[in-house]
Design a protein around this nucleic acid. Structure first.
Lengths: 328, 328
DNA sequence: AATTTTTGTGTAAACGTTTTCAATCATCGA
DNA sequence: TCGATGATTGAAAACGTTTACACAAAAATT
């Protein structure tokens, strides 16, 4: 079949050990090294990674399990992760769970079977709570969502703080009746809601929030209903890019403009938020840093197993645009 | 270390062969099967995929090498690929090349070392032409870009046809001076240019095209220059989503609106094209089909090595929106 | 010159599976 | 009752590496 280290050894007239040592820059004389390299070239040899991994017990692989890579947040994070892995000579296995706990479980098992070096994981609330029941024998770093404290390292946004930024801004612009729309599958949605509710209370306003499925269609339906209802809110805060998309569509479909018809603010500074209508006010997440930091945490823990569990909380930046212009 | 098939065998009082057979639904009596399954549960055994792959000589892995997963076209294709792989019990290794031939070469080598079952690849022009020099011992299906005919299976868009649709539409709407902007790294850009130029000639118009780096910033700079120039075009056709983004930004930055200031049409029906200004007229690619078809071709070739080389050409759909409204 | 150390190399034993082959045992048809 | 058949099982040989160990030759130290 395919050419193995044995063929190279035969071709170069040395033992397989010598070939292996040449490959790993071990102790070999200059002369034999040349002969081996020539033999490698002549035979077109390529190391077999399965064999290497089996013998060395190092997979040099990190797992990345997210809900949907099409979500620009995860796309960006994944690029940062891959970049870090690339520089560390590692590979990345990427899995999409669609926020489905069954698929999450399946992929966690896969990670074990692959004997991954470590895992970066954005779990649903369900799996997050049950995570301790999986006996995972590799380090895990949670991103975007965080579990019960003290179990796994995590890199998350200061969700409550970010919500506060949005509410404070809206209030400063003169809005009072501010509705909230939050995703119902992740802890992120909950935290953003809590920050929103707390900020509203602090301003002496009544929060009116709904948790919905984190898909554009759900948000569009809900905002449409709000707009058609008897007491239409003045502004809406939505907890991620998909919901923001749905809200935008609903406003357009109702023939309204922002912010007169409805002021809109949300999370995730996706490319299009700058271009639509007067521009959307959003929280920009430090996506690149989130991915890079997660990898850094992972590598540190691989070095030292006895580190305390760390949770890194990064702040979002409020990008103010026309969709929340001062209320007239 | 980690628990192996031997531990399970000992625990169940059977041989490793029997455990292996249980795992692969081989011939084992109901009673022993139960004992083995119980032992698996008790020991928390997980098969080691490296060992399995080494022994069985099947990696059950397909490689997916694209320029940048952040490009929504590739994001969507990758989901389709992963979906198909998932149903076939395979995993996917994803690599981003950033249109860099060196990285492409590196990853092609990696694919060999992983002994992938097959590869789905969107190569740059450079690598596409040199692809025959890599002695790859697995089937390759090209997507989005196609190489010299007769070498590898491919799934591509009818690029020339799609460009024709756009030009015909613009001409029908009353535009004459139509500039073209095309990416300079892939064969796709070339084909879209050729379709554009041919259509222009057929209408008795002079094509004026430029090839630029496939990044938003490049398009923005170029369109800005066009708008500031002495003889501003009436319309512009751009060859992918990134360029479309740049063109949109340039029009906005110049304080113009579409289509009065400049009519814009392009490729890739990304979410935001529907929302920006009057909506952008675009070619929608059958992204899901492209990914699924690529996988289908791959599986067919794995079954039968002697199939003729096939190139599947799919048609794009022209989504007409306000950015190309009839010229007044 | 007689040692010790260093350097380079080969042999062979893992790593955790799958699979071939042979062996055992019960069942069955005559 | 007896050989034949079929169903289960185990022993052992791969798969392609890395690496511990041994050993020779060369270099360095007495």
């Amino acid at each position: 079949m395919s050419v193995s280290i044995k063929d190279v050894a035969r071709h170069a007239g040395v033992s397989v050990a010598t070939v292996s040592r040449t490959l790993s820059n071990g102790p070999v004389s200059g002369e034999t090294r040349l002969r081996v390299e020539e033999a490698i070239r002549a035979t077109g040899y390529r190391p077999n990674l399965s064999a290497r991994r089996l013998r060395s017990q190092h997979s040099q692989t990190i797992g990345l399990v997210v809900s949907d890579i099409r979500n620009p947040f995860f796309t960006a994070v994944s690029r940062a992760v891959e970049e870090a892995a690339y520089h560390a000579g590692m590979r990345v296995i990427l899995c999409n769970t669609d926020e489905n706990p069954d698929r999450e479980e399946l992929y966690l098992r896969l990670m074990q079977e692959e004997r991954v070096t470590g895992l970066i994981f954005a779990p649903t609330r369900t799996t997050c709570e049950a995570l301790h029941r999986f006996a995972l024998d590799f380090p895990v770093v949670l991103i975007d969502r965080s579990g019960p404290p003290g179990l796994h390292d995590a890199v998350v946004l200061d969700n409550a703080g970010a919500s506060t930024l949005l509410v404070d801004h809206l209030v400063a612009q003169g809005y009072r009746r501010i509705h909230g729309l939050f995703g119902n599958t992740s802890t992120t949605g909950v935290e953003r809601h809590d920050g929103y509710a707390a900020a509203m209370h602090r301003h002496g306003l009544t929060p009116e929030a709904t948790f919905i499925a984190p898909q554009a269609a759900a948000a569009e339906a809900h905002v449409t209903a709000l707009l058609e209802g008897t007491d239409r809110p003045e502004a809406v805060v939505v907890s991620n890019g998909q919901l923001l998309l749905g809200a935008t569509r609903a406003v357009r479909a109702a023939g309204l403009t922002m912010p007169d018809g409805l002021a809109v603010a949300g999370f995730d500074n996706e490319t299009w938020t700058e271009l639509v209508g007067p521009g959307l006010t959003v929280i920009e997440q430090p996506v690149q840093e989130i991915g890079a930091t997660a990898m850094a945490l992972l590598f540190e823990r691989l070095e030292r197993d006895d580190l305390p569990v760390r949770k890194i909380v990064l702040s979002g930046r409020c990008v103010i645009r026309g969709s929340t212009a001062a209320r007239s």
